[in-house]
Design a protein around this nucleic acid. Structure first.
Lengths: 215, 215
DNA sequence: GGAGTACAGTGACCGTTGTCACACAGGAAA
DNA sequence: TTTCCTGTGTGACAACGGTCACTGTACTCC
């Protein structure tokens, strides 16, 4: 474990009060994740609250056959709401989390994050806000699958990607199919249709997004 | 508003400490809901934390066209986790909640439920446990829709009903179709298949469940 | 008892999605 | 260049689920 990078912390978590940030620097550890490395596994016991300081984390649900369903992405400055909920009673993770890019997470021992809820108003607010934000995003993901056909879900998915990592989406059709728990051929077909409308251009291993609102 | 029924409260929320229960009795209001009455609407501002003392509440998501997706049921002794999250910052409800039976909810003003988090350990635990439980149930609902075909989702749905209200499920095929955002004919077909396996018996306006595990 | 109404059953049909088979294209390595 | 591998395109086909049309069946209210 290395020491925490104070600058990054201050910048990404500016809503937290100064003494709290000091405590975080002192008391937490952090961990580098390689691209593709898992941060949390379903069923794993959670011993710390997880904050993301750098990189990008994908949070998803996985079934017995290995099908995935993407819940949401965590960006720097976000916390894994579920790690907060589980932490309190030393429970198992309900979800999978994987680093999309090289990332850095801050691990806060559960007894501290518990303690801080009472001690630091900004921590308390941060936690509540995280819960609410994640719940909201999860509900959006749920909406898309409950009420929308696959073509709309795909657009929704591409939009989210544009939001977190810009207009060049560096994913194969296979990867997209996985995250939507669909199949490659179907995704290829739908992407082709999108290309025909002019919304995107397809390349090998990446997709160029022009304008998803025209669909 | 009538006075709270102390006996019910003590019984259903026995995990809360005595002084807290006293405060609830003193400071909260409660509200009777008729069968079918809405407790929360999407977009409505939430001013209180909602606890359920009697009856049964259905929590669901609704899209623009009025399609529903059932998230979970709340039973007496449960809290609406989302009302807790929204309450803190006076935000809008993300979900719909409707009384399935005649019900009774306890409304706790947001400033109090906020205050109690620090003041009463049992309240704090109760809130965290609620978040976690609801999240877990929501994820199960999500799994069923993301990874399962409609026949399995139907069984999952029936199981939940048996859990909360016993072996006689008093619902029309149409109502079931709504909650699974499917259509009556399809549900009828699938129920018929279930009947042929011997798992259930169909009647007008209700379903008799024998054994859902044989499917 | 008869009419009306909500619920349930069923066959036909069709669009979407998943699957299989195979062709093809681009990049990397030999 | 040749070979290989991975990613992409595409047609055929099947299964599932949604829709339509219509029938039948209980229950309720005159």
């Amino acid at each position: 474990m290395e020491s925490l990078d104070k600058e990054t912390l201050l910048q990404k978590f500016s809503q937290l009060e100064q003494p709290l940030l000091e405590e975080i620097l002192l008391q937490s550890t952090f961990k580098h994740l390689k691209e593709g490395e898992e941060a949390l596994r379903t069923g794993q016991y959670i011993k710390s609250t997880v904050l993301l300081s750098k990189g990008l984390l994908k949070v998803y649900r996985e079934d017995e056959e290995g099908n995935e369903f993407l819940m949401y992405y965590l960006e720097p400055g976000n916390a894994c709401a579920l790690s907060m909920m589980c932490t309190a009673r030393n429970e198992k993770s309900l979800i999978m989390a994987k680093a999309v890019d090289k990332s850095e997470v801050i691990l806060i021992p559960s007894h501290l994050s518990e303690l801080w809820l009472a001690k630091y108003k900004t921590w308390h607010n941060f936690v509540i806000a995280s819960y609410r934000q994640r719940f909201e995003e999860l509900l959006q993901a749920l909406d898309s699958i409950a009420f929308k056909a696959l073509d709309e879900r795909l657009v929704f998915y591409l939009r989210r990607h544009v939001k977190v990592s810009g207009n060049e989406i560096k994913l194969s059709h296979q990867q997209i199919a996985n995250e939507l728990s669909s199949s490659r051929e179907v995704i290829s077909r739908l992407l082709k249709k999108l290309e025909q409308t002019g919304a995107i251009t397809l390349h090998r291993n990446y997709i160029e997004v022009h304008d998803l609102d025209i669909v």
